[in-house]
Every structure is written in structure tokens, then in C-alpha cells.
């Protein structure tokens, strides 16, 4: 059995660990609320933009717009959106597992990575998968600037023909307790509604014209989707961290109860032994 001194030291250490996990849980809860609000605030714009795109898509489909056109896929880029910081339970682990699965399923040389987040960078640095570009300095909040930077890079690769398809892998946010690793095709934008979609026959005035509007619309649409993915990922991360820290907090509490019980027993038995010694000594003096 451990000595009293060792037990006391462990109790002290577990107590301070519990304080830290408790604090981290509360911080994560606060950050989750903020990240969630940000994710929600991006929706109205994205919804309107999508509506606009769809109502124009039918017209534009007749024209050859590169961002729309699916072409023969020789090279695919896989964007993996991880977190910047750790201590968020299985958040990154689940993501990387899905990424590995996708990477292994692809023909060698046909799939390369675009990495977002410091933890994703650290993970893939130790592995041999080809990496096109790494964004590890995007800051802690999902911002429009970050989304534009990543999107601009992807669009350039797509338009130059270096990649024929871009897929994104991120953690979709459902609620504080529910999130899901999600896989989506990012480029080509495609999936324009079939004939008979929203009517475009009504007379719409286009200024300066349909084509330039479309050309300006598509990158913004891509960027809005990227922002949504980044914002979702951030909210999911804080949700995962909150859950992980809550569990750590609970475990620390249970461990502490056990250690305190052991310490009390040990102390009790030592006191009993001392009393027996004294009583024994007194008896002997008689």
C-alpha cells in the first residue's frame, strides 16, 4: 500500500488537474456559444447567395463556365479542416481516420492534401501523403479572410487545371453534443438544378450582364461555403473540447474520492496502531 505521503501528493495533483479541466470546460462552453453564433450568422448570406445562384444557374448552364463544368478527374485535392489546438477529445482523431480512409482508397498519386489547422499539419507532417499546401496560421476564429484565402488558393489550382476536383473533409456542427465528420465536393460547384428548376424566364435585368455577374458570383459562393465549413468546424471543436473536459473533470472527481478514502483509511489505521502501542506500553509498565 502506498505511503501516506505519496497519497497526499497524488491528491494534491489530482485536485489541481481537476481545477484545470473544470476551467477548460467552462472556457470551451463560452467559446462554443460564440462559435455557434458565428456559424449561425453566416447562414442568411449563404442561403440568399445559393438562391441567387440557383435561379441563374439554368441560364448559365448553356454557357461553358469552368467552375461549373465537371471534367475528367485525374487529380483531386482533399481539404482536411482540423483544429489549431488539442485537448478536444476525439475531434481530430475521427477526422484523420476519415482522411486516411479516403487517402488509402484513392489511386496512388491521384489525391493530394490541403491542410487547414495546426493539429492537422502536425499529424500529416509525420506521414507520407502528398501535401499541396498547408494553412496553419488562420487564426482561432473562422473569418471571412481565412475562407477567402483558402478558397482563392483552391480556385487557382482548379482553374489552372492542376486539380480537377476538390473535396472537403470537416466536422459538421449539429449541436453541442452532436457533430459529424462530413465529406463534400467543393469544386466543381456543379449540381445545378435540372431543367424545370426555379423559373428564370421572368424578366430580370442584369447589370452589367449575366456572364460577369456569374463570374463574380461563383467565387463568392465557394468562399461562403468554405466559411461555413470553417465555422462549423470551430463550433464542433469547442463542443468536443467541452465534452472531453467534462469527462476528464468527472474522472478526476472519481479518482479523488478513491484517493481520499484510501488516505483516510491509512491515517485511521496508523492512529489505531499508535494507540495500541501506547496501551501496550502502559500495560508493560504495570
Amino acid at each position: 500500500m502506498a505511503s501516506l505521503k505519496v497519497l497526499r501528493r497524488r491528491i494534491r495533483s489530482v485536485t489541481s488537474t481537476r481545477q484545470i479541466t473544470k476551467a477548460m470546460e467552462m472556457v470551451a462552453a463560452a467559446k462554443l456559444r460564440r462559435a455557434q453564433a458565428r456559424a449561425l450568422a453566416t447562414r442568411p448570406y449563404a442561403i440568399r447567395l445559393t438562391g441567387m445562384l440557383e435561379s441563374l444557374a439554368a441560364v448559365a448552364r448553356e454557357q461553358e463556365l469552368p467552375l461549373f463544368a465537371a471534367r475528367e478527374v485525374k487529380h483531386t485535392a482533399l481539404v482536411v479542416i482540423g483544429s489549431n489546438r488539442g485537448l478536444c477529445g476525439g475531434f481530430n482523431t475521427n477526422l484523420f481516420r476519415a482522411a486516411e480512409e479516403r487517402l488509402r482508397s484513392a489511386a496512388p498519386g491521384s489525391l493530394a492534401l490541403v491542410i487547414v489547422g495546426r493539429k492537422a499539419r502536425d499529424y500529416f507532417r509525420r506521414r507520407t501523403w502528398p501535401v499541396l499546401v498547408t494553412f496553419a496560421d488562420l487564426g482561432d476564429d473562422a473569418s471571412v479572410d481565412s475562407a477567402r484565402r483558402v478558397t482563392a488558393d483552391l480556385l487557382a489550382r482548379f482553374e489552372s487545371g492542376a486539380v480537377d476536383k476538390v473535396e472537403i473533409l470537416y466536422t459538421r456542427f449539429h449541436s453541442a453534443l452532436r457533430r459529424q465528420v462530413t465529406f463534400e465536393t467543393f469544386l466543381p460547384i456543379g449540381a445545378a438544378p435540372a431543367d424545370g428548376g426555379p423559373e428564370v424566364a421572368r424578366d430580370i435585368i442584369f447589370e452589367p450582364g449575366l456572364e460577369p455577374i456569374f463570374a463574380a458570383l461563383l467565387p463568392r459562393f465557394a468562399s461562403a461555403r468554405m466559411l461555413a465549413a470553417l465555422a462549423d468546424s470551430r463550433a464542433s471543436e469547442e463542443g468536443a473540447r467541452m465534452t472531453a473536459m467534462g469527462a476528464a473533470n468527472k474522472n478526476a472527481g472519481e479518482l479523488l474520492d478513491l484517493l481520499v478514502l484510501q488516505r483516510n483509511r491509512l491515517r485511521q489505521s496508523m492512529i489505531t496502531r499508535e494507540i495500541l502501542d501506547i496501551v501496550g506500553g502502559a500495560e508493560a509498565l504495570k
Partner: peptide, 19 residues
């Protein structure tokens, strides 16, 4: 501030999309 110059819109305007 439309790309072709400022434009003002009142109720009942025709359908329009502009940069």
C-alpha cells in the same frame, strides 16, 4: 453603388440583379 453607377430603388421595381 452598382457597377454601372449608382442606382436607386423604390417599391415596385422590376426584377434586377447587379454587381
Amino acid at each position: 453603388p452598382g457597377s454601372e453607377g449608382y442606382l436607386g430603388v423604390l417599391a415596385g421595381h422590376a426584377a434586377l440583379v447587379t454587381e
